[in-house]
Design a binder for these strands. Sequence first.
RNA 1: CGGAGUGUAGCGCAGUCUGGUAGCGCACCUGGUUUGGGACCAGGGGGUCGAAGGUUCGAGCCCUUUCACUCCGACCA
Length: 420
Amino acid sequence: MRFSRMLIPTMKEAPSDAVLTSHILLLRAGFIQSSGGSGLYNFLPLGKITLDKVRAIVKDELDRAGCNEVHLPMVTPITLWEETGRADKFGKELLRFKDRHDNDFTLSPTNEEAMVNLVRQTVKSYKQLPLNIYQINWKFRDEVRPRFGLMRGREFLMKDAYSFHASVEDMEREFELMEATYKKIFTRLGLAFRVVEADSGAIGGAGSKEFMVLADSGEDTIMVCDGCDFGANLEVIAEDETICPKCGGGLSQTKGIEAGHIFQLGTTYSEAMKAEFLNENQKLQPFVMGTYGIGVSRLLAGIIEQNHDEKGCVWTKESAPFTVNIIVAKAKNEEQMAVATKLYNELEAKGIDVLLDDRMDKKTGFGVKVKDFELIGIPYAVVIGNDISEGKVEIITRDGLLKETLLLDGLLENLLERLA
RNA sequence: CGGAGUGUAGCGCAGUCUGGUAGCGCACCUGGUUUGGGACCAGGGGGUCGAAGGUUCGAGCCCUUUCACUCCGACCA
């Protein structure tokens, strides 16, 4: 993409009401903007690209694990929620409204009921099990107090998966598979995280684990072991506990952002909604379920909370909206522009996502382009400037802002090697 | 929902105490000079001062009501 053709409204100053680093940087770098209501945000081109990248990684790993992507309406009839009693339990977080026939509906904050409904009218035999179906779409929760930008918005992109099994053992197997799958997803995103034992909360069910992105600004306090990978939510382990129950190592407190949560659900919902199948013994039996969520839009905030410096965002390799930012120092210089365009085309041909900063309006000098690069946080910049006459370009690695001068000769190969 | 605060141009703010026809910086538009770290000069466009009502000859400013947003707390698949 050419910078000059994209809507990227970077700002020197952020709105004064943004306090969290990720919120400030995502606004300043032009990824998102307020849409006017509390907890509601417009995703601008850079934000949309980044969101799609994270979403694609989530989808890729789930599909590899055998999950099926579906799409359910974001509007569900309240009657579905009344079947499980959650119409009352959820209370005001459910945004309710009526259609023209005066029937009650809600914007879905989660979809256990809708998924169980889908399965109960489709799956009749144990031979169709196990089954894991998921969707990645927008959820709405009328939060008591939306805050911190994408961290706790009212409308947010969430992946919600639901698995259906003939036995508790098989559900537990799937639970472990999802834990492993989540670890792959978070690792690919380049995040430092902990899997912690957690309370099951309003969803209900037996066991649950939270995936916490480690960040000082996290809203959750967790206990982690210095010696192994054990971690636990404060609700689950006593705060004054100092010895790791798993390895005997020392426990310490830290902060985390809840970005994923997996539950062993059991038959709570299937029983309430009479979702049953015929088992091997020709007996009707409620589905044994698991449910698994990932806050996709929240992950964007989490990635920035964990990866930024005083200059701006530092996107990780797989989350970055672009991999390379070609800065044409003086875009009116024909030689510079020609070299930049050639490199741009070559990288694109190799499947690399490149942003060509070709802006040539007189207000957008070299300094502005570098500042924007630093603010936006694309992993690498290739600066094509005066040194081009000597056959040299500069490469800046965003993480650490390391600058290197390279020969134009062999540049493409050099870059491809770094990006591999 | 309790406590605190803020609403004036796209963003950041001043002006409110002490009422007199709205201002600064950034951004934006035009022209020129610049050109490797958010450059400079000149000119220009943009605001029913969150909304409603009241006091007054006159309200951004005073009074009443209301709405929105933010922060702390409680809450949170």
